[in-house]
Amino acid sequence: MLMTSGPWVWIAGLLTLAIYSFLYKDNPFYKVAEYIFVGLSAGYWAVFLWWNYAYPNLFVPLGEGNYWNIIPIVLGFMMFTQLSKRTSWLVRFPLTFVLGVSLGLQVIAAVEGDMVPQLQGTFSPFAKGALFNTYNFWTSIGLIVLLVGVLSTLTYFFFSREHKGVLGVTSKIGVYFLMVAFGASFGYTIMARISLLFGRLHFLLSDWMHILR
């Protein structure tokens, strides 16, 4: 990476400390760092979108005679009509085009990319018969747990009937499955957060201060 030595690494180090100063309390150093971050990020996205997509895929082909590209460019520019109250209704044209395409794809993706394979994954191990002959003991138990868990969790989210009797017991089991899953997410979240802290502290101690080798 381009974080080697000289003034740049000092800038990176001091900005890191400016953000950490928030841990003591909110202060101007943190705020300056925060606003620099927002400004730079916005500029970064604009530059990358231009050089990686808008320029090569929209404007270069247009220059080469692909006049169909006028349509997305015009619809794209119509997004800017939102900036004025008088013309803001025009934004509905690009917006509905974009929504139409993405929602259409979403319907198909939810069915063929998620629901069908997920239900297959839940039920197909049982269709093969002889569960315990096909898989080892703990996998077989796991697959039964998986089936019970999916059905009971779905029952918990079924709000059209009062959760009483069999429905009540099943949804209660579902709650315990959800708790295990939330516990798992919590455990993994700790790892994620510590990783980020490790990354920054490692940078401060090695690249900046050269205490660590």
Binding site: D114, M115, Q118, L119, G121, T122, G142, L143, V145, L146, L147, V148, G149, V150, L151, S152, T153, L154, Y156, F157, G174, F177, L178, V180, A181, A184
Partner: peptide, 12 residues
């Protein structure tokens, strides 16, 4: 298994 089951239920 238990984690994947709950996540799958939520996802469906």
């Amino acid at each position: 298994y238990p984690n994947a089951a709950a996540k799958r239920g939520i996802r469906l």
